[in-house]
């Protein structure tokens, strides 16, 4: 039995194996997410160019709210969030519950078609929408042919129409993605529940609001948090669809942070403080959504 002291027990051995298995992933996340997150916090209280950084206290945080471009970017992100996310999630929910119907045919075909936009890269679809809504683009050609417009309208040259194009593009790209989440959530609900409700005289609307939505609540919460997170970080669309224009009217926070860090004279401290505002917003909104979503009713 002299060996037993050196040898690990079976349980300890397995626990050690577990630690070895998860170490590479954990170290990578620590170095690639948590460490830079802490560095960015320190950076956000500094100012200067390149390596010559000086501590400035909270001036960066005061500055961003006096910076008209940043305030516009913050507003834009919230416009996209408040208008686009609800429209997208509700459409996805309606489409998923339609496609969950046992009597309907060609479901595979519809599902594939609606999910297909997700296979395009963000840059690609932004460029496609930019071309479709150009002054000489297809949308203008159709509107002129229909007699609605006499000459091409510069959709991307006016703040509100440019924002609408971004919102339409986002809805096009992401509705199918969220629909797939709801469809898999719906598969966990026994179809007999719907049939029983039908026998009891429930209308399709009633079963949608009384059965589908309550049972899908965890999935809806997940997609709401994911979309909020994604919308607050929009970058590719702002750069490639409108290039933030006209005159920064459609720019997003991430796009402006990129410009401040790499396009203009680099100001990493100021950029880091703005990125921290996104971090705080993401955390606060996720917290609120979790609180609201967890309520028992």
């Amino acid at each position: 039995m002299g060996n037993s002291k050196k040898k690990l027990s079976l349980g300890q051995k397995q626990s050690l194996a577990g630690w070895i298995f998860l170490t590479p992933a954990v170290i990578l996340i620590a170095i690639m997410s948590f460490l830079p997150m802490i560095q960015a916090l320190f950076l956000s209280f500094q100012t200067g160019i390149g390596a010559a950084m000086k501590w400035t206290g909270g001036t960066n945080y005061v500055r961003m709210f006096k910076d008209p471009v940043f305030v516009q970017a913050l507003k834009n992100n919230f416009i996209y969030l408040i208008i686009q996310v609800p429209i997208m999630l509700i459409s996805a929910l309606v489409l998923a519950s339609l496609l969950n119907n046992k009597d309907l045919r060609f479901k595979g075909l519809f599902r594939t078609a609606i999910f297909l936009p997700c296979a395009t890269s963000l840059v690609s679809y932004a460029v496609i929408f930019r071309s479709l809504f150009a002054v000489d683009g297809l949308v203008n050609i159709v509107l002129i042919k229909l007699g609605i417009l006499s000459t091409g309208y510069n959709f991307l040259g006016h703040p509100n129409s440019a924002r609408i194009v971004i919102i339409l593009a986002l809805i096009w790209r992401w509705t199918g993605y969220n629909m797939v989440f709801y469809l898999s959530g719906l598969q966990n609900i026994e179809y007999s529940v719907y049939e029983a409700a039908k026998i009891d005289g429930a209308s399709p609307f009633q079963s949608f609001f009384r059965i589908t939505i309550p049972l899908l609540k965890p999935t809806i919460l997940l997609t709401a948090i994911m979309s909020t997170n994604g919308t607050l970080q929009l970058f590719d669309e702002s750069v490639n669809l409108t290039n933030g224009g006209p005159a920064n009217a459609t720019i997003t926070m991430s796009h402006y942070i990129y410009n401040v860090s790499f396009k203009y004279v680099p100001n990493f401290g100021y950029a880091a403080s703005m990125s921290y505002l996104i971090l705080i917003l993401v955390a606060v909104l996720a917290f609120i959504q979790l609180k609201v979503g967890d309520k028992r009713d």
């Binding site: 997410s33 830079p36 997150m37 960015a40 950076l43 997170n229 990493f268 990125s275 996104i278 971090l279």
Partner: peptide, 20 residues
């Protein structure tokens, strides 16, 4: 703790990562 990393926006880690 790892799940918390899901909430970290890329803009917040981008600059330190670039310098690193």
């Amino acid at each position: 703790v790892i799940l918390l990393a899901m909430m970290v926006p890329f803009a917040a880690t981008m600059i330190p990562l670039y310098r690193m």
